[in-house]
């Protein structure tokens, strides 16, 4: 392994002097010249808001809750986004409809704490919570930065169009009985002794 530090005793005085001259005169001066040339290069700055930046779809901006292809809420209130959140700005409460489908009774994001890290999106097993390219969320009152489910929930599927958790998971809900999820056999008749 080469030692990047030039040790005073490791080389002859002359060699060291030569190296210093090389460093100072060539390397540094060349650097100065190259940086100086940037004076004549077009700037990269986007003059927002007069000029709108191009936002990439994976940009981590405003958080939304999406619906599955059937139009139902994707969020199953599993709490994984809340626990993944490093600033603990997500709070929710699970509730259940008559047919066993889990959904959040309330879902609250305190955007005044949110750091847009996207951990919630990564943790979400149902692709319900997604970050969008919208970053224009400033408010004059901090209280207005607290968003409830009504503010977060959109009508569509967001970035991921296919995901439909309850079509895969074995729990039965309204409109999907036991044995009707992907790759499932019909329910077992426990009274039968046939193999």
């Amino acid at each position: 392994m080469s030692d990047p530090i030039v040790r005073p005793h490791s080389k002859s005085w002359l060699a060291k002097f030569g190296e210093l001259v090389k460093d100072t005169l060539t390397s540094q001066v060349v650097t100065l010249w190259r940086v100086f040339r940037h004076l004549f290069v077009a700037t990269d700055t986007v003059q927002y808001p007069e000029q709108q930046p191009h936002m990439f779809s994976r940009w981590r901006g405003r958080i939304i809750l999406t619906r599955d292809p059937d139009g139902e809420e994707r969020c199953v209130a599993c709490n994984l986004c809340a626990v993944a959140c490093p600033v603990d700005c997500i709070a929710l409460q699970k509730t259940e409809d008559e047919e066993g489908r889990w959904y959040p009774e309330f879902f609250r994001i305190n955007f005044s704490r949110c750091i847009m890290c996207g951990f919630c999106e990564e943790a979400c097993p149902t692709n319900a919570i997604q970050l969008t390219p919208d970053f224009e969320m400033a408010e004059y009152k901090r209280q207005d930065m607290v968003w409830e489910k009504a503010d977060l929930l959109i009508a569509g599927t967001g970035k991921y169009h296919e995901t439909n958790f309850y079509r895969v998971a074995g729990k039965s809900i309204g409109g999907k009985d036991k044995g009707e999820a992907r790759n499932e056999l019909p329910p077992v008749d426990v009274r039968s002794l046939l193999p």
Binding site: V35, F36, H38, V41, A42, T43, D44, T45
Partner: peptide, 8 residues
């Protein structure tokens, strides 16, 4: 500094 760093 801005110009040298391609900024404004």
């Amino acid at each position: 500094l801005g110009f040298w760093q391609d900024r404004l």
